[in-house]
Amino acid sequence: MSAIVALKNVVKEYPLGATTVRALKRVDLEIDRGEFTVIAGPSGSGKSTLLNLIGCIDVATSGEVLVGGQNTSSLNDNQLTQLRLRKLGFIFQSFNLIAVLDVFQNIEFPLLLQGGLTAGERQTRVMDVVEKVGLKTQLRQRPSELSGGQRQRVAIARALVTRPEIVLADEPTANLDSATGGSIITLMRDLNRADKTTFIFSTHDHRVMEQADRVVTILDGVVNAQGLSAAADDSAPTGGSVHA
């Protein structure tokens, strides 16, 4: 199985006043296509930073980040934006839906940014994901009219509608109650199995970890351990490796 994400000797530093904070310390990581991977760790450990680098919304101070075989360090802002648009899908902790657009329009938005599809094609694509996330009856509702779980389903649909190679989810259950969170994780796991889309999470939710093919733990910017979860025993692809 080929690695869809590869980090080689990645360092990320942030300036903080007169000092510099090193958020990631020489990280090497490979994630295979179709994996359902969890990046776990306590707050401030560097898991979000790692996810941002993989999601091309931040750049490494040094080292290489390869996404879909493309070295992101050499890309400019426009190229990184195109990469995010074509290959990545995002699910945010706070859902981050566009408040003034309804459910359909929120999901359609990335397709419009991509361009090249007719209105009919876009509708088919939107309806396809809407059906998967179970929001057919809420298409014309605004985010403010939806529950937290419904909003996250819209976010998942928006992330999947462009048929990305990788979906990145930053603490997707953090703002949800346990029942809703559980159903969202199940939904994503099902989608992963059905479409073979690579899912990468940052979380410290144990239920998410239980569903993961692999859990990568990170502490103080250093990747400490990796392993296969129970859920991966029978179905998950293998082959990911972590080098501390």
Partner: peptide
């Protein structure tokens, strides 16, 4: 800012 950041994250160019 958050909304703009989201749009940028999911693929909106600066010009847009």
């Amino acid at each position: 800012t958050a909304e703009i950041g989201t749009m940028r994250a999911i693929g909106a160019q600066r010009g847009q």
